[in-house]
Design a protein around this nucleic acid. Structure first.
Ligand SMILES: [Mn+2]
Ligand SMILES: [Mn+2]
Ligand SMILES: [Mn+2]
Ligand SMILES: [Mn+2]
Lengths: 217, 217
DNA sequence: ATTAAAATTTAGACAAATCTAAAAATAATT
DNA sequence: AATTATTTTTAGATTTGTCTAAATTTTAAT
């Protein structure tokens, strides 16, 4: 399985939750930063290999084989991110692009030993679950902070946007995985939220609060 | 710099010590397990990029730029090998092929942090020196065991052949980096050597002894 | 039900890295 | 020095993944 193929099935995996009746060619082209015509070619190839199910004009689905391979790529990605942060002093905003490279290294022993070396982490630095060696993913119930309610305490468990820009914003405001957040007020007009973190008060737009995952304490 | 290009300059680097008047196309084709015509094409491309110096029919040399890049690829290769053995429970005969993949991961921070994490090792699991972050390589004086002399004690400091087959032979006979070896006898006819390791006596052919590097104790 | 717009696929081309087969240059032998 | 043999390069083809431009299909709007 080539690097490009792995990236495509991973993209299909991530888009499937949003497009339940098949992932459209254009959505995939966007995600892969390529052109629709390139996607059509690749999707046909992956369908021939039995990794996707695909009918022309109808979008793509992962086959079981495709899904389990996609999950393994995601396992590798998240384990490497965890390694970089835990062992090599990387910040959580520096690891994604590097993990995009490392996730394609092919070795079961490597990834399982890395897993053990890290003490079988269940989540990566961004709060995303790390599939276990059998592809099992621990589902946790989380909501977007934008869905939070006044005067309720929450704890940050993940982020939706994990681009460096957003993560640096969170760093600047002392928000990370595990941070306790108390919702003080929600402005009706634009859903902007006033929250308290360690006695510091902070106002965040909906663009921010809808990218932070929390759970009730 | 692509994966193929990095592999070529690494191959030129390793062959330059044997071919001082330019690395011949065929030698490179052998090493790269490809055809001479493919080598010609690639060598021309690398020369245009300023990584090699090349005159048709005259063989290839590394430029300074090419050499320093080759050394960095070797640094990455050996640091990864060391990581796999030291931290992930790999045996020294299992790491080479995996390091061939890992050496192409592009990130200075990654490799320098890995270096620090491993406590700045000077040698890899096969006894080969690890270039430092400036490309400096620690040269140690070593000889082939086949050049050893009777009744002199040596210590194994490296191997010439690091294929799994040879390394497994060494494992089976309890020979590794640091092992003390006493030369007891050398048979004139075929240069086969009788040696003593921890009171165990062992006879090794020249094919073996010329692949073990030692230094006088 | 037509027509217009959007999404998708096909056709044809291109760069990277490889191959085979043939031509050219260099080295070795007579 | 002329002839072979070896090495190296060129010419033309192939695979992978991409592109642009044109054709087709589906969806939305009159
Ligand atoms: Mn990531
Ligand atoms: Mn992540
Ligand atoms: Mn190696
Ligand atoms: Mn090595």
């Amino acid at each position: 399985m080539t690097l490009a193929e792995e990236n495509y099935i991973k993209a299909v995996y991530h888009l499937e939750s949003k497009y339940e009746n098949g992932v459209p060619t254009n959505a995939l082209a966007d995600k892969m930063k390529t052109k629709a015509s390139s996607v059509t070619d690749m999707v046909k190839k992956l369908a021939e290999k039995g990794l996707l199910v695909y009918k022309p004009y109808q979008g793509a689905f992962l086959s079981e084989k495709g899904r389990s391979h996609a999950i393994m790529v995601i396992r590798r990605h998240r384990l490497w991110e965890q390694f970089l942060v835990e062992k090599l002093n990387f910040n959580w905003d520096e690891v994604h692009d590097l993990a995009e490279q490392l996730e394609h290294i092919e070795s079961d022993k490597l990834i399982n030993e890395l897993d053990a070396f890290l003490d079988f982490p269940t989540h990566d630095p961004h709060g995303d679950p790390i599939p276990d060696r059998h592809g099992q993913i621990q589902r946790t119930d989380k909501i977007m902070l934008s869905q939070g309610v006044c005067n309720i305490g929450y704890q940050c468990v993940g982020v939706n946007d994990s681009t460096p820009n957003f993560l640096k914003y969170l760093d600047k405001n002392c928000i990370g995985i595990g941070t306790k957040i108390l919702v003080k007020d929600i402005e009706e007009f634009d859903q902007s939220m006033t929250i308290k973190i360690n006695d510091k008060t902070l106002v965040m737009s909906k663009a921010i609060t809808s990218n932070i995952y929390v759970k009730k304490i």
